[in-house]
Write a protein that binds this DNA or RNA. Structure first.
Lengths: 235, 235
DNA sequence: CGATTTGATAAATGTTACTCATTAGTAAGT
DNA sequence: ACTTACTAATGAGTAACATTTATCAAATCG
């Protein structure tokens, strides 16, 4: 607790509106974190890019994490709102494929931000209850709803739960994306979206088509036999 | 670069063999990281538990990360070697289920270590080429082999690649585990292993029944044509 | 037993996130 | 216009770590 001696060497002061300051800092933070990732990015770096001094950042944001959480929220919220509604898509298979596709698109456009969000933020204890939690919830709940509906209507088997299916979808997508970020090979968004949707859809289909095909075949075969017999009698 | 003045207050010195020192430190580190996770655990904490001073740790390990990487490697390598060989299991479905089950078991037994390994270590740029990379490779390559075999033998469709299937399997498992660690509900290892294996298996099965339906349709169509022709001749 | 090597020790240093006393600029009151 | 009160920016400082290093106790060896 030593007494503090301060020197009065002060330059000019930048006076702007709060909104401008905040958006400057967030833009700088976004650029910096996109380049370096959460651990590596320094507050001093962000401050320099934004043209302010470190202390100024702490006037507008609680701490480093708070700042970057807000950056991630702004980005993810914006990306989500661009998307068309899932209900307008016909058929469970197409719905699943679209969900996979849109997730891959968002992640692929800003992989470092996505990584920060899904791997650094999500594990945090304070994650639940944060506005980001709601965003992510809204995101994955579409998939959950589609699966539940398919199970309830009898289109899907009921021997695997809807949350399991949701986790297969997003788990595959994320796993594949992180592997890509590590440099373990390329992949095509369309191919992954189609593959994962296809496996889930085919794996869960309660196969009414196959059953009814067999029934109808039996029926047709029977009638054909009748006709054949009738024809034979005539000759 | 100030000149350093040191005081000669020294207590007794603990002199042990290098091996003992190393295993003491690793045991302490493992206990500490299991309790607190990578970020939170302090070198000073590990040193205290191991009964050494901080500097001693740096005689045997490059840095904090190096120490914890070695801890994770030792644990994961041990857990893997306990497992029975996958080839002795009959049937693709059973193989997939066993792979899922053994992964879930290992992760579930030491979730914090697993999290550290799969989420902190794996994304690291220096990850490739590390001994841990090989371990993980060996781990997932079993799944890859099983899927490739099933595709090659015609048991599975060939319209989704084997690496996709592997990523669905491990992606689902990891996603589900992290959700559990976040406190988002319980889950049973058996249920998840069975579910994910079931969906992949059913979704990829080349469905010979459907093919035979097509054959029967061809046959019926042919016969119907005969009958029609016969009927037309009569009239 | 004395010299030399080994390796443990405690203090120093470096790096960052974060705090706070101080002041530049602004608005309000008279 | 001039004082006063307020707000926001500043940058030197603090705290919490990981990591380095000069020093010395113990072990080993000739």
């Amino acid at each position: 607790m030593r007494k503090v001696e301060r020197v009065a060497t002060r330059r000019t002061v930048n006076r702007l509106s709060s909104d401008d300051r905040i958006s400057d800092i967030m833009a700088a933070a976004r650029a910096a974190v996109t380049e370096k990732g959460y651990e590596k990015v320094l507050i001093s770096d962000i401050a320099e890019r934004a043209g302010v001094v470190e202390g100024t950042i702490y006037r507008y944001f609680e701490n480093k994490r708070d700042l970057l959480v807000k950056v991630a929220e702004a980005w993810f919220g914006g990306a989500l709102s661009e998307d068309s509604r899932i209900d307008s898509i016909d058929g469970t298979m197409n719905k699943l494929r679209h969900l996979a596709w849109r997730t891959l698109s968002i992640i692929r456009r800003e992989p470092v931000l996505a990584r920060f969000m899904l791997m650094e933020l999500r594990p945090d204890p304070s994650y639940r209850g944060s506005p980001f939690f709601d965003l992510n919830q809204r995101f994955t709940s579409d998939a959950l709803r589609v699966c539940k509906q398919a199970i309830a209507s009898g289109e899907f088997h009921d021997d695997v739960s809807a949350p399991m299916l949701r986790d297969m979808l997003f788990g595959c997508i994320e796993h594949r994306t992180w592997a890509f970020l590590r440099g373990e090979g390329e992949f095509s968004i369309d191919e992954v979206a189609d593959g994962v949707a296809k496996v889930i859809y085919r794996g869960m289909l309660a196969a009414p088509a196959a059953a009814s095909s067999a029934d109808r075949l039996d029926e047709i075969t029977g009638r054909l036999e009748q006709v054949t017999q009738a024809l034979l009698k005539k000759t």
